[in-house]
Amino acid sequence: MPADDQSPAAGPHVAGPPDGPAVLLYGDATCPRCQQAVLRLRAAPVRLTWRHLVLRARGPRPRALAGALEAAGRQDAFWPVLDALVGDPGRTEDPDLWELARRLGLDVARFDRDRRDDAAADVIAADLAAGLGAGAVGTPAILVGDGAIEHGIPDAAWIDALLARA
């Protein structure tokens, strides 16, 4: 791996206040429920970790978007790209991804190369194995601390309860 590919580290990807309650989300950026979950959790003071749960049965786009997210992560733009994908889910085809990368000031050629490489594939496969091992039976699959895995969209009451426990 070239030296300029070493930062930042590949997933899992974490955002939010360091002292916020930790929420781990296994998701698929094409899944409408995941999109809603991310929008709500990103708006809350939680420490959100994203890992990919890419299911072959859903066709090629979940894998394509996961690769794009990994590639963006290598240019320190994982969260801006995820925010854009979940906020504008009608624009997730390849030309949309190239335009998004350009708008965010990424090296588009590198982004396009990275999203298809073995390192991205390895992260996506490892995340899937971890998610299935954790008991995920759909997306989103959400883990808080040592609690049981949950599959709903976090609503205001769920987030309030989480913050109250923290």
Partner: peptide
């Protein structure tokens, strides 16, 4: 809806 996710996940197995 729930069954939908379940079988797609099991497909991976």
């Amino acid at each position: 809806p729930v069954c939908t996710d379940q079988l797609q996940v099991y497909e991976e197995l």
